[in-house]
Design a protein around this nucleic acid. Structure first.
Length: 566
RNA sequence: GGGCCGGUAGCUCAGCCAGGCAGAGCGGCGGGCUUUUAACCCGUUGGUCCCGGGUUCAAAUCCCGGCCGGCCCGCCA
């Protein structure tokens, strides 16, 4: 490979902050520095960044890391250096559906779904029978959200479309050069070498639909078709050059060739020296005279579940969660931040139940970025500040640091304040509690507006029981039974007091309650509050009572309390 | 057979490249905020730096050899 350094040995793949050309840098900056040098040497000024993924099942957030976000950051930083850039994402929709148990399970009749085994993904039906295909089904929770995680310039292409266009020319070229190709590929296929006369194209069988079991027998290039035999059903037929696929190594080169790719990261499954990426590079150079794109090996993303177990996310095994699920409970910038603070070859572990923790980290990085705080270490400050800065997609961080309302606080608030009051009452209370400044700036308000619905959703879906608050609409008998007579009377009397208040305000309620419990022993007060929460929330603790009551109709509060009287 | 990442406080991790008093956040515990909290404030607790050897005045850090955990590739994509 033209004698230049192998990126796999670079420190910036493993260390978050590195010294590069004598300067301390964020790994992403060092990477781009590295790439810019290569491109200048090659006389490349227009850079096509590509990512690739096969829609074999669940499109989890791990796919965002290497194939989209890293590419996005590289494209953005290269353009700041004066390069023109494009970003593509190639969907391998012609790949064969493997028919793994986990894939078949998506269908109501997994047994019957066996018949799709070996079909191109794009032709496998939607398991739910609503969308045109399997691809559409699983692209649904991923594709539409790419823009939120990026600059919004990612152009999606499918190999299915490409075979009808530019890749068809590449197929012809490959059939012409089949002997050269065979010689190289067979180096990697010791035990199963392709025989002499092998044609590097696998058509889709017109009878059984499989794309993974056919052997091309002869090619008619002017007519753009090949004759084949299906090793699965025995069918022999002619197929057009667009209705099939190339052996994957060749296809990969074809994508580079068709799109003019100059940079494409690759997952750890392709990163072994002498492995798939290296062999594709060799094909590109020796057969097609094509300079292979610059690459970047990256680790996958694993998922941590609340019980502490972790597992690599896997598309075809349906392990992980999707960008849509992430956006339900957190902002896209937060995910970018996690990706950016982790060097590419280190595993990134995420769990949706840990979102509040990630916001703690993010806020800290934000304070460092705005110079409000320091970790005491130059390299750590640099990592946090730069990761924070690059976490922004279209915009840059605001001039003034936004307020940092703690995520769990918002989760509680959102459950206590009715949804229609989030922009009024919830904001008011955040100001009162000091989580928002007196006259909140736009960025702070935006953050609260974006986070309240997300924190609410998070509380419903992933929060521990302790943080989940739900008002009891009616009072179940078994809860009443748990309240001793003495306290039932006390609570009912509190109801009387509240009923007589001139004003139904937080302040008035708080005063009344303090007055009501004045002089009580600690244990009595504690038990009183426990039963108070019990009859409203079904548990023994909750958010501060006065602010909570002030948001509820007085009649509801009073009736609940008085209803306890024997 | 080959390759990658990790092992430091109960948990999540920083520190290692470039050796110099073992750190942060969270948790726990105690206290405060006139009940509570994965809110806020103050204080406090906490370690065989995986093991063994080597280099060194000095090793979590460098070198050698192991062990453990997670993962990838071995001609599918």
């Amino acid at each position: 490979m033209s004698g230049s350094r192998d990126i796999r040995q670079e420190r910036f793949l493993r260390e978050a902050v590195v010294e590069y050309h004598g300067r301390l840098m964020h790994w992403a900056d060092a990477l781009v520095e590295f790439l810019a040098e290569r491109f200048r040497e090659q006389g490349v000024s227009h850079v096509v960044v590509n990512g690739g993924l096969s829609v074999s099942g669940l499109q989890h957030v791990g796919r965002l890391r290497g194939e989209i976000i890293i590419g996005d950051v590289v494209a953005r930083l290269l353009s700041e250096k004066g390069f023109t850039v494009e970003q593509k994402l190639t969907l391998y929709t012609q790949d064969a559906w493997k028919g793994k148990a986990s894939q078949r399970k998506q269908f109501s009749d997994p047994e019957e779904a066996k018949r799709y085994t070996g079909w191109p993904l794009i032709r496998v039906p939607d398991p739910l029978g609503e969308l045109p295909s399997w691809v559409d089904r699983y692209w649904k929770d991923f594709g539409p959200f790419i823009n939120e995680f990026t600059w919004g310039r990612v152009e999606v292409v499918t190999t299915t479309d490409m075979y009808r266009g530019k890749l068809k020319e590449f197929v012809k070229l490959s059939i012409e050069k089949r002997e050269e190709i065979r010689r190289i590929i067979n180096k990697y296929r010791g035990r199963k070498p392709y025989p002499e006369g092998w044609i590097p194209f696998e058509p889709r069988c017109s009878r059984c639909g499989r794309i993974d079991r056919t052997v091309a027998l002869e090619a008619d290039l002017p007519a753009e078709k090949v004759r084949y035999r299906c090793r699965s059903c025995g069918n022999e037929d002619w197929a057009p050059l667009w209705d099939g696929k190339l052996n994957w190594r060749i296809e990969w080169v074809g994508v580079w060739w068709a799109l003019g790719v100059k940079f494409e990261p690759y997952g750890k499954d392709h990163a072994t020296p002498g492995g798939s990426r290296d062999s594709a590079n060799e094909l590109a150079e020796k057969v097609y005279g094509l300079r292979p794109p610059e690459g970047l090996p990256y680790e996958w993303v694993a998922m941590r579940t609340p019980d502490g177990r972790e597992q690599d996310m896997s598309s075809s095994d349906f392990v992980g969660f999707t960008p849509r699920e992430w956006l339900e409970v957190a902002e896209p910038e937060l995910f970018r931040f996690l990706v950016l603070r982790t060097p590419p070859m280190r595993k990134l572990v995420v769990g949706l139940h840990e979102v509040p923790l990630y916001y703690d980290w993010y806020y800290r990085a934000e304070r460092v970025y705005y110079g409000r705080e320091s970790t005491g270490k130059k390299s750590e400050d640099l990592l946090l500040a730069r990761s924070y800065e690059l976490s922004y997609t279209e915009q840059v961080p605001p001039r003034e640091m936004p307020a940092q309302p703690p995520y769990t606080h918002l989760a509680i608030l959102a459950q206590v304040v009715p949804r229609e009051l989030w922009e009024s009452e919830a904001v008011k209370r955040l100001v009162a509690s000091g989580h928002l400044p007196e006259n909140p700036d736009e960025a702070s308000l935006q953050r609260v507006k974006r986070l309240l619905p997300r924190a609410y959703r998070w509380a419903q879906l992933y929060a521990p029981e302790q943080l989940r608050i739900r008002l009891l609409e009616s009072l179940p008998g078994e809860i009443v039974e748990r309240v001793p007579d003495e306290y039932r009377e006390l609570l009912a009397r509190l109801g009387d007091v509240l009923a007589g208040l001139e004003q139904w305000s937080e302040e008035a309620i708080k005063k009344a309650m303090i007055e009501f419990t004045r002089g009580w022993e600690g244990s009595r007060r504690r038990r009183f509050y426990h039963y108070l929460y019990l009859v409203f929330l079904g548990r023994e603790s909750g958010p501060r009572a006065a602010p909570l009551f002030s948001l509820l109709p007085r009649s509801y509060v009073v009736e609940r309390l008085r209803g306890l009287r024997r």
